[in-house]
Amino acid sequence: MSESFLVIDDSKLLHQMYRLIFSQGDLAGSTIHYATNGREGYGLLAAHPDLTLVFLDLNMPEMNGLEVLARARAERLHSHVPIVLVTTESSEDDEARGLAVGAWDYLRKPFQPADIQRLVRRARELRRGRGAA
């Protein structure tokens, strides 16, 4: 079964970038769900309990990344699914807050394909660790 990921970001450009990254190397062939705002993202997260990794943009209209994260963690929604908070420079406070409310890690723009690949590798290890336990 192929892996699936969720990208929640209000920028279509960022969607394209993820698409590019997920079309390369061993990520090719995986399923990616896209949401363009927090509300939509929350819905997709609820509908897919088996995601390998979620990329959650911090700055979004409707419901921002922190709100999505806080709500998901408060409602214990698939708490085994790691969520990466995607930030931009000078969002240090929000990064700390994100980690505090349960982000698995954060990723700062500008990021490179290699950063995503590394995170996915780590998420797979996490998954394997859980599976074995």
Binding site: D10, S11, L14, N59, P61, T88, P110
Partner: peptide, 15 residues
């Protein structure tokens, strides 16, 4: 603010 933040992030990603 939201637009500026998005532009900043997009531009950073594009180098």
């Amino acid at each position: 603010t939201g637009s500026l933040h998005t532009i900043k992030g997009n531009s950073a990603m594009m180098g």
